[in-house]
Amino acid sequence: MAIEVRDVNKSFGTTPVLRDVSIDVESGSLTALLGPSGGGKSTLLRVIAGLEQPDTGTVRISGVDATRLAPQRRNVGFVFQHYAAFKHLTVFRNVAFGLEIRKRPKDEIRKRVMELLELVHLEQMADRYPSQLSGGQRQRMALARALAVEPEVLLLDEPFGALDAQVRKELRTWLRRLHDEVHVTTVFVTHDQEEAIEVADTIVVLADGEVEQVGSPAEVYDNPANPFVMRFLGPVTEIGGSLVRPHDIEISTEPVEGGTAATVSRVVRLGFEVRVELQVEGRDAWVQVTRGFADQLALKSGDVVSVRPTPGARSLVLATV
């Protein structure tokens, strides 16, 4: 295991922010810490980096107990949401910083920094200052800077959070490819489930300071441990007292076995997908179907249909209030 966090508790004042958090991060993996904002993701990441001290619990990095180790001795790379670029240093000197601290020979530093700048496609920008870069370029520089010291683990706190949607998508794909090239154990924080599912091999869902579930993207999406995780990872709707993914519901115009009667209230065409809004037992629900299927049934508002979860689809029975 590259990182083992055991029973970590952390409070700010009287507010508990992490509660008995234990996670394992496998060597070479790309793990997402996913959860709503304020759930303690950054705090957990900072505890791993040593930027925050846990009240109780331990953190082991590469088998070594690092709980009381200062951040500069943990050999972790940390990338901050707002880049934390060294404003008074050029891109080259930013990336060289960790190596200069380690007093590596000049030509070795030069070689390594240029390699890294090539890796993050900033070789043309070596002599610029951070203020002369775009947000995406700054974040790539921060990544190169963190990688320069060959960290045991790379920690990224909402690395693309401050970027616009387009750049964000590009960098996501790029991060995945970079990880496949460099193989450094990576943990990144995000509150965007799509980002976590697309990029990570393992997702840790963290909410209210507690780990809700750990698993591969497919596992947490298809087999959510509880309604919270199910809601957080993708769209859900409620039918017959169960929480179901809207694409896991069958509609038929004839009554079917195990089906529930529903009235179509609206049919919304969103390109390829069609969103059928329904009234089921006096509650709102919706079903996602393909355009072809919707056309075939010729659904319109006011129709009475029968709906049931697709056999084999995962649904969660909600406790009745």
């Binding site: 040593g50 951040p71 901050f80 910083f97 921060a142």
Partner: peptide, 13 residues
């Protein structure tokens, strides 16, 4: 203190 923290994680005392 972001920049200072970044420096710490890069090995600076």
């Amino acid at each position: 203190d972001d920049q200072e923290q970044a420096a710490h994680t890069l090995g600076a005392s």
